[in-house]
Design a protein around this nucleic acid. Sequence first.
DNA 1: TTCTGGACTGACCATACAGTCATGTTATTA
DNA 2: TAATAACATGACTGTATGGTCAGTCCAGAA
Lengths: 224, 224
Amino acid sequence: MLLYYTVMFWRAESHTATHPAQVPDGRSMKTKQQVLSEFRRSEIIDAARSVFARKGFDRGIMDAIAKEAGVAKGTVYLYFRSKEEIYRAVLDNDMEFLKKNTLERINAAKTLKDKIQAFTLTRLENAEARKELFRIMDLESGGVSFTRSQYRRWLHEPVLLLASAIEDAARRGEIRRVHSEKVAWIIADMTRGTIQRRLLGQNDTPPSEDSKFLLKFIWAALAV
Amino acid sequence: MLLYYTVMFWRAESHTATHPAQVPDGRSMKTKQQVLSEFRRSEIIDAARSVFARKGFDRGIMDAIAKEAGVAKGTVYLYFRSKEEIYRAVLDNDMEFLKKNTLERINAAKTLKDKIQAFTLTRLENAEARKELFRIMDLESGGVSFTRSQYRRWLHEPVLLLASAIEDAARRGEIRRVHSEKVAWIIADMTRGTIQRRLLGQNDTPPSEDSKFLLKFIWAALAV
DNA sequence: TTCTGGACTGACCATACAGTCATGTTATTA
DNA sequence: TAATAACATGACTGTATGGTCAGTCCAGAA
């Protein structure tokens, strides 16, 4: 559906441009081909995310991805070199977003308490809104060779940011002196565990409730 | 090596018994065949544990397991029906032991503080002594269809035991009132995360140190 | 020494699946 | 409308691997 609207739009707009045209503001304009190509790409990525979330990398079959994307298997290979490249694409997309989102919200928060809450709540909310991604993480955290280190990297920055906030607060005497990095990591651990339990459906309370619970526990542990 | 010693022992002991003989205390005695059979079984399980720890279930190849066990592939199938059965055998063995070990040590501890320490320390020490098992857990927690629920079951009992100890302590006023089960789960989360970081080699301190750190954090969070 | 049952072997089979490519199909240009 | 280019298709190929089984070997019996 979207496909046809998009194509018609470009047809009216730029006729049959083969090279990127320029729009008034100077940024390059997408050609029809690029739009189509990006559309297919994202369809395939969506299908792959869904399949990998259900089956994992090894058992997530290319035929299934193609079928779910509504194209033939050969088409998938017009857009991606290999299964692994699709997997990477899914994670690069999603994890990068998640990382940035977490960093932003921690930075936006003023107090340490709010920063901790920002961390847990961002993860919990994203897990809610993007169950498939978190299922993949849950399923495959390290199973596929190249992901183990990658996963850590994606978590690493937010955790370090949290750690430095903890460090600052401790220095200001707002909380007791702690090994800030270790504390930041175990906050991440608790959050992940809570998310996993939510994914297993043991919990139908809103994310904010879990976040509140975690914050209360953590804050009690940090009190001077 | 062990094999030959064992066989010779049985030869001297019970000559060529085909049926289980009786020893004085009335328990049935193993025949030579049983000893041989159990020896092979455990060789295969050890090989499988090692292969699965390195490769995971899907990429852990039967030929590799057979080779590492020092037998032909056909022999493996004399002892196990399928790859899945071997995997189950590895986990049943090890996880059951780990579960019992954890329960015992929690029960042996008197105070809540000691019980919490028993939980974390048992897990940390076992992770140290049985790296391969924990690598499998880390790698495959839910990847293979039948394991997801199984893993939770193995953790569930120790966590509930811990939860009830927390509940009691809260009732006696030793700690503040908390949702004991949730707290027990996040203690498990922190422990698991710490173990995973240890497995990644980020940490060469003794397990007792990590355990002490966790206990201090948790205890601060629970203080009245 | 010869015989026999059962443990062991590894070449072999069947299947599943990632990736390819000859053959359409559709859109665009002239 | 015909020619061309670009995109899409799915049957097909090569390989990896779980599982099998006809045959070998050998400890112990007679």
